[in-house]
Computed example of a mutant assay.
Amino acid sequence: MDKHRSIEALAALAHETRLDVFRLLVKQGADGMAAGDIGDRLGVRQNTMSANLAVLSRAGLVRSKRDGRSVTYFADFDGMRGLLGFLMEDCCGGNPQLCQPLLDEIACAC
Rank of each mutant, 00 (worst) to 15 (best):
H4V: 13
D31H: 08
R58E: 06
I7Q: 14
K3C: 04
V55W: 01
S50Q: 12
M88I: 05
R63H: 06
A12D: 08
I7N: 11
Q28C: 14
V71Q: 11
A59H: 05
R66Y: 00
L19S: 05
R41T: 13
S50R: 14
Y73D: 02
P96C: 11
C108H: 15
A12N: 07
A14F: 14
Q46Y: 06
C92R: 12
R81F: 13
A75Q: 01
C110M: 08
S64C: 01
A9C: 10
L102W: 14
D20Q: 13
M49L: 10
V55F: 09
R81L: 06
I38M: 01
D104Q: 03
L98W: 08
L56A: 08
A51N: 09
A30I: 03
N52S: 10
D2V: 07
N47Q: 14
T72P: 04
K3V: 10
I7L: 14
G94V: 12
V26D: 01
R18T: 02
R18V: 08
G43W: 00
G94I: 09
V55E: 07
F22N: 04
A9R: 06
A34T: 07
L19H: 03
V26P: 00
S70A: 13
E16Y: 07
L25Y: 11
G60A: 02
K3M: 03
G93P: 12
H15R: 07
D20M: 02
R81M: 02
L83G: 11
